[in-house]
Simulated assay, not measured.
Amino acid sequence: MDIDELTAIDVHTHAEVSAGGHGSLSPELFGASAEYFKSHTERQPTIGQMAAYYRERKMAAVVFTVDAEHATGHPRISNEEIAETCARHSDVLIPFASVDPWKGKAAVREARRLVTEFGVRGFKFHPSIQAFAPDDRMAYPLYEAIEELGVPALFHTGQTGIGAGVPGGGGIRLKYSNPMSVDDVAVDFPELRIVLAHPSFPWQDEALAVATHKPYVHIDLSGWSPKYFPPQLVRYANSLLKDKVLFGSDYPVITPDRWLSDFEKLEIKPEVRPRILKENAARLLGLRQPAPGGPAKGVSE
């Protein structure tokens, strides 16, 4: 991957269909998400199609699914398939994995194997879909392994379109995605690099507080058009968190084309834009080393 040739790194995209046509969500939850995001066309690109899409735009993309088999009973897309397909498109795709923390010791073994044998560069958690609180000690052995492996953990935060409008929200509880629960994880695993995904409605201030206080906690900007960003998020991105805010689209539900078009109109300082679009992610993911004497792991002090 030639970082200098890339225009941006999208740290938040979803593999929603396997090579065999298996979807990442049940039809009920998938339909609710499509309705919520008004994304009814070309909704399920394959990973290979995603590679072509991002290559055309001279962008890289982090790709993952969500393993929520315990809570939903729906079989996941294989982490190995995602990693192997991304490896075939390593000029533009970066594989993350998702391992259901309810799987206990098996989850820990799988996480280690995925990093050491398949080149996975991070892990995605969606507490609301996976039905666990991030600070539940049940998940701590998995965090410990991820911390030791030296790769990031990305947590969905805030409201989710998945289950929206379905009676009972499809069983999905929003409370699990309050970013303050991730604060405990940052305390108990001080070297773990963490990404709080999305503007964290209705807990935006909590997310900003955690990211400001904990040196290895970042925020990605996926899932919302920038024109809807809360003003305090823009203010912090321009100042205290300028080295810790990351471009993410949530593709395919939101395209990078739409996101970047709206981002151009946002009042972001010229010197901050390239950090958000590429440089912060490049350092976090180990794609670019920090400058001599600079902060470790791409995080401002």
Rank of each mutant, 00 (worst) to 15 (best):
K38S: 12
Q204Y: 03
V253Y: 13
L246S: 09
P27V: 03
G168C: 05
K58A: 06
A87T: 01
I146Y: 00
R43T: 02
A186Q: 14
L29P: 08
L142V: 02
Y53M: 15
D2Q: 11
K175S: 08
S18T: 07
P292T: 01
E117F: 08
A282F: 11
K265T: 10
G150H: 09
M50F: 04
H126T: 05
A87Y: 05
R112Y: 05
L241Q: 06
Q159L: 14
F118L: 15
G161Q: 04
A107C: 05
A106T: 06
R113P: 01
G104K: 04
F125Y: 07
P27T: 00
P179T: 02
K38F: 11
A281V: 09
F155L: 03
L154M: 15
Y216R: 15
L6E: 03
K175T: 04
V108R: 04
P45R: 04
H74E: 11
P230S: 04
K242A: 15
S26Q: 07
K297C: 07
T212Q: 10
V115C: 07
S78R: 01
H14K: 12
G21I: 02
A19T: 07
R288H: 13
Q232S: 15
D188F: 12
V299S: 14
V17R: 15
L260W: 11
W259Y: 15
L284G: 12
G73F: 02
A107L: 02
S18L: 05
R275Q: 11
E271M: 00
E206C: 02
E110M: 01
D67L: 06
A164F: 12
G163Q: 09
A237H: 02
L246F: 11
G31S: 14
A211W: 07
N238Y: 03
G165L: 11
A51G: 10
T72H: 14
I82F: 02
V115A: 04
A68N: 11
D262M: 07
L241M: 05
V115Y: 09
D183C: 08
M180D: 07
L277R: 14
S128K: 12
L241R: 08
G20T: 05
G122Y: 09
P45K: 03
V217E: 09
G170A: 12
D135H: 00
H218R: 15
I77P: 05
A207K: 01
V185R: 03
V92N: 14
R76W: 00
V108G: 01
A107K: 01
G73A: 02
P45E: 11
R43Y: 02
N178V: 06
D91H: 14
W203L: 09
T13Q: 13
P134Q: 10
A296I: 05
E206T: 06
M1R: 13
P134S: 11
L285H: 08
A97Y: 05
T13E: 12
G165V: 06
H70K: 10
T65I: 00
G119I: 05
T85N: 01
Y228P: 00
F123S: 00
H70Q: 11
I3G: 15
K38M: 10
S90D: 15
R112K: 13
T41C: 04
L285Q: 06
P95H: 09
G20K: 08
L142R: 00
K214Y: 10
V115M: 03
Y236I: 05
